[in-house]
Nucleic acid binder design. Structure first.
Length: 480
RNA sequence: CGGGGCGUGGCGCAGCCCGGUAGCGCGCACGGUUUGGGUCCGUGAGGUCCCCGGUUCGAAUCCGGGCGCCCCGACCA
């Protein structure tokens, strides 16, 4: 026994999460509190998310640009709610080049302010609109409690910033980008998400409306996976982003911003992982197929490795990401466990018997034991592997959706809501309460309003807290 | 910032109460053995015992001060 098994999810989910992150080689601790080193294996997962998202961002007409890491402190203070929201968690540079700076520089926590300032220069006329910009960057928020990927002092993300002539256009953009996020989550990460609008309390600092995609992790806690904000004219007014209309009048623009972060890597871990370790969706897996050669003696070794190389080449040529585990010191059993922990969707075993019979074993990560194992002819191996990968991608999504739906319940009274939340589930309930009511729910139950889902019943009901007539159902859950 | 815990080879820990040659497991290197579900044996490399000061013939251990980290809460993508 050379490696301990990981802590079971049911025993201690946080501990399980941390162990997986480090042992699957996604990340490593950093010398700076609250930061992590993203290791190649974890970074490749992020690159997969990034590639799919970047493609969609471009397909919807946006262009990438890059704005500076440092923001003059005065910029942050221009939009009242924005300052209030972000000042507690800013990192500020006060010295550079050996002397105190005239004006301190904030390390960006987000870029609405610098980009807003630039937009005010770039936009003169209605002909300059809409302006559709995205940037891939790192940002810093000095959070008090951090966890790898989920909340780190520095994180990587994409932040989109757009300016429009009308409210409706800005709203349409905001919702479009939320759809893009949902599409990435569902179709690439195999994470089912609920689209909805944030409550006033949970809204982005300075936004008119914030939309979100919310996902359920394996411990049933909610994770906000991406947000899209309609900023109204708040930032346009603070940064003087105006345009001349066709009728030659000055109008303020309507702006939006939207972001998705490396938190998504954590979401993948916590949505699909099991007691054996990670389960990566094939679309994001750095290695989709890992080949484990099995042999006893040198004579067998050559024959096996020859077959392995041939199969690897064939799979790679047909577009699959393949890794051959050539480590000499480890037994096949060790390797099986190792790759299961690292979440590789499909394992191929090639041993002397397979060489002889022109076969190979394919074992899927999402179905453990014999049930997930099959002997396949080498002649049809490409199709078999492709079909299995597609099926694994689908089944991870289905599993996650089934799990989630089994843990969302309707609450028709506050007592019911408390009970549901206490059991760890999510509660759907009519809501027309005030900010104070919302704060009280958080206080009394630990749950927050994750969103008002877009999907609503065609009905009205009584608010579980204020007893007022409510137009909408809200989703309550304990969140990360 | 409030409450709790911990700093000892890369990782996880023991030793500390009761001062006396710094230990164990894993990992790592080398040799052999094994290989279709976490092989086994041998040899070896690797340590400012968080830092500063004090007590003492002698401090990982006792005393004083500092620093750092982790967990729980408030803040948050």
């Amino acid at each position: 026994m050379s490696e301990q098994a990981v802590t079971a999810q049911s025993e201690d989910f946080s501990r399980w999460y941390n162990e997986i992150v480090y042992r699957a080689d996604l990340a490593a601790p950093s010398p700076v509190r609250g930061c992590v080193i993203i290791k190649p294996y974890g970074y490749e997962v992020w690159e997969g998310i990034k590639a799919g998202l970047d493609r969609r961002i471009k397909e919807t007409g946006h262009q990438n640009a890059y704005f500076p890491l440092f923001i003059p402190e005065s910029y942050i203070k221009r939009e009242a709610e924005h300052v209030e929201g972000f000042s507690p968690e800013l990192a500020v540079v006060t010295h550079a080049g050996g002397k105190a700076l005239d004006e301190p520089l904030v390390v960006r926590p987000t870029s609405e302010t610098v980009i807003g300032e630039a937009f005010s220069d770039w936009i003169q006329s209605y002909r300059d609109l809409p302006l559709l910009i995205n940037q891939w960057a790192n940002v810093v928020r000095w959070e008090l409690r951090t966890r790898p990927f989920l909340r780190t002092a520095e994180f990587l993300w994409q932040e989109g910033h757009t300016a429009h002539a009308t409210h409706d256009e800005a709203e349409e953009e905001t919702l479009q980008m939320l759809d893009v996020y949902a599409d990435c989550a569902v179709n690439d990460a195999a994470i089912p998400v609920i689209k909805g609008e944030k409550s006033r309390m949970e809204r982005f600092a300075g936004a008119m409306r914030t939309y979100t995609i919310e996902a359920m992790m394996r411990d049933k806690r909610a994770l906000q996976c991406g947000t899209s904000h309609n900023l109204g004219q708040n930032f346009a007014k603070a940064f003087d982003i105006r345009y001349l209309t066709e009728a030659n009048t000055q109008e303020f623009c309507w702006t939006t911003s939207w972001g998705l972060t490396t938190r998504m890597v954590g979401a993948v871990v916590m949505t699909h992982g099991d007691d054996k370790g990670l389960r990566l969706p094939p679309k994001l897996a750095p290695y989709q197929v890992v080949i484990v050669p099995i042999y006893r003696r040198d004579a067998q070794r050559n024959a096996v490795l020859e077959t392995v190389d041939r199969l690897r080449e064939a799979l790679t040529e047909s577009g699959m990401r393949v890794h051959v585990d050539r480590r000499e010191g480890q037994s096949p059993g060790f390797k099986f466990n190792d790759w299961e922990m690292r979440g590789v969707p499909l394992r191929m075993e090639v041993g002397p018997r397979d060489v002889e019979n022109n076969k190979a074993v394919l074992a899927r990560r999402d179905v453990m034991g014999r049930a997930g194992k099959q002997f396949v002819s080498q002649d049809g191996i490409i199709k078999a592997a492709q079909d299995l990968l597609a099926d694994i991608q689908r089944s991870l999504l289905d599993d996650a959706r089934e799990f989630r739906d089994a843990h969302i319940q309707n609450a028709s009274s506050y007592a019911e809501l408390r009970e549901i939340v206490a059991a760890g589930d999510w509660a759907r309930a009519y809501w027309a309460g005030s900010d104070e009511d919302e704060a009280a729910v958080k206080d009394e139950t630990g749950a927050t309003i994750r969103c008002f889902p877009f999907e609503q019943p065609n009905d009205r009901g009584q608010c579980v807290k204020s007893s007022q007539l409510a137009q909408k159902i809200a989703l309550f859950a304990k969140a990360y």
